[in-house]
């Protein structure tokens, strides 16, 4: 038996010529996004794709992300661990990655919307924040 070096190794990347790199799954997703963007433009109906629910290798998530590119907005949340959101090169399509406190990906979503819901301040949080603000305010008497 020969050594390990005798075993020919071909890495997956070698097979995919970089310039023509689009897989059927990525193509289908891009088409879905285009349709959804059209629907959103006309009716205002938003849409979310959960990448975990799709039967594709993780490498293809990357491919899709590269295809969509990066647009003008980039947002970081610090809420139960970091969440990174950016608008893609196509306005109205957002890339959302929720991570846990250990930095591991919990969910990865592509949203079709004007602004992902999670960015907005929530009524409950505003209410709670208002109370804190009032408590923190110096009272008139001491002034």
């Amino acid at each position: 038996m020969g050594g390990l070096s005798d075993i020919p190794v071909v890495t997956a990347a070698d097979d995919v010529a970089s310039d023509t790199a689009i897989t059927p799954a990525v193509q289908a997703l891009l088409m879905e996004l285009a349709d959804r963007l059209e629907v959103f433009r006309q009716t205002g109906e938003t849409h979310v794709i959960d990448l975990r629910s799709l039967p594709m290798p993780v490498a293809e998530h990357e491919l899709l992300r590269e295809w969509l590119g990066v647009g003008e907005v980039r947002i970081e949340l610090d809420s139960l661990g970091p969440t990174a959101i950016h608008e893609t090169a196509y306005p109205g399509i957002w890339w959302v990655v929720h991570r846990n406190r250990d930095g591991e990906v919990m969910t990865q979503q592509v949203e079709v919307t004007a602004c992902p819901e999670i960015i907005r301040s929530q009524q409950e949080d505003i209410h709670e924040g208002l109370q804190r603000l009032r408590e923190a305010l110096p009272t008139g008497e001491s002034a």
Binding site: V48, I49, D50, H98, M106, E124, D125
Partner: peptide, 26 residues
């Protein structure tokens, strides 16, 4: 809320839970 978890964090948790439950994100 008692654990100091914001509503936004809770929504994030729910998004992760939906994904985990194999339910649509909506």
């Amino acid at each position: 809320a008692r654990q100091g978890i914001s509503r936004r964090a809770f929504l994030k948790f729910c998004a992760a839970t939906a994904s985990m439950m194999a339910l649509p994100p909506t």
